[in-house]
Structure formats: structure tokens, C-alpha cells
Computed example of a mutant assay.
Amino acid sequence: MADSSFDIVSKVDHQEAENALNQARKEIEQRYDFKGTGASIAWSGEQILIIAGTEERAKAVLDVFQSKLIKRGISLKSLESGEAFASGKEFRIVSTLKDGISSENAKKINKLIRDEGPKGVKSQIQGGELRVQSKSRDDLQSVIALLKGADLDLDLQFINYR
């Protein structure tokens, strides 16, 4: 019997992220407490740039954006935000969306599967994803449960379950 397998990936739906950003921008433009504060949120290349008059306002804009991401089904583990920093008379926060599994995180996941997963489960790193194989589908299910329960700082999806 052939081995069963699945892939572990960490991907962000960029269309949903775009929608979340647009919703946050509209809310910031319309909310009374943001009127006249110069608060804004926009894409700056691959990064998200938040600008506001005070550090508290910048953090409030980030909070609005995070709530929109959650409503759109994007995990906050995929959002990496820097600290608010002053740039002239305004405060800025630069955020990025993490896409793919870094090689060091892939090695951590691989080690976790090897150390705590069922015997007979093989995992290998393939670029920005991991392929997990086993003869038993129950072992694969237990690996998925193990990874969902692990305290990893990235959002994992399990695809191509065969």
C-alpha cells in the first residue's frame, strides 16, 4: 500500500488581506475619534505602513487592522508588526505579512515531528513547505493534532491530504 501524505504550509490569502486593509482604511476615515489626527494605513510595497499623529493613535489603527484580519479569517500569527517609531511629527508602524515557512521554523517543525510524533512518520523540507508521509493515516492525523497543539509562532495549514 502506498504511503499517505500531506503538506504543511503557511500561506496568507493576499486578496483577503487587501480587503481587510481596505475595510480598516474606510473605518479609520469614518470614525469620529480618528478625525483630524492624520491617521492612515496603506500598502508600501510588500509592507503595511501605519501613520498617525501620536503613538497611541498608531497602535489604535493597528488594532483596527488586526480586528479586520481576524474577521477575514487571517491569523494574527501571520502579521509581524514593528514598534511605533517617530518620523518627524508623526508616528509610524511598519508591518509585514509572513508567507511561507522559514528554514529555521521548518527545522523546528521537522524536529518536533521526529521527537514527539509517532514512529514511522517521515517529514522532509521542500522549499517553503514540509511534506509529511506515513503508511498510517491515523499517524498523520496525530501529527496534525500535535502541530495544532504546539506553541509555534506561525499559522500552519495542512493541504494535499492523500
Rank of each mutant, 00 (worst) to 15 (best):
F158A: 01
L21P: 00
L152I: 08
I101N: 09
Q126Y: 15
D139M: 09
E55P: 01
Q15A: 06
K68Q: 11
K68R: 05
E83A: 14
A17Q: 01
G100T: 10
A24K: 00
P118W: 02
T96C: 11
R25G: 07
G82P: 04
K71F: 14
V64P: 04
E80K: 05
E46N: 07
N19H: 15
K59V: 08
L152S: 10
K26R: 10
V12N: 10
E90R: 11
V61E: 00
R137A: 13
D139N: 11
Q66A: 13
Q141A: 08
S136H: 12
S142R: 07
E129K: 07
G73Y: 07
G45F: 03
S102D: 04
E104P: 13
K11C: 15
L147F: 04
Q133P: 11
Q66H: 14
R25V: 13
I113P: 06
E104G: 12
D3W: 13
R162S: 09
Y32N: 09
L130H: 00
G120W: 02
S81G: 11
R92I: 00
K122C: 02
T37A: 04
S102W: 03
R31P: 03
K108T: 10
L97A: 00
R92H: 15
G73N: 12
V121G: 04
A84Y: 09
N105I: 03
I8R: 02
D139C: 03
N105E: 03
I144G: 04
R25Q: 11
V64W: 10
Q124G: 09
I74N: 03
S67D: 08
L49F: 00
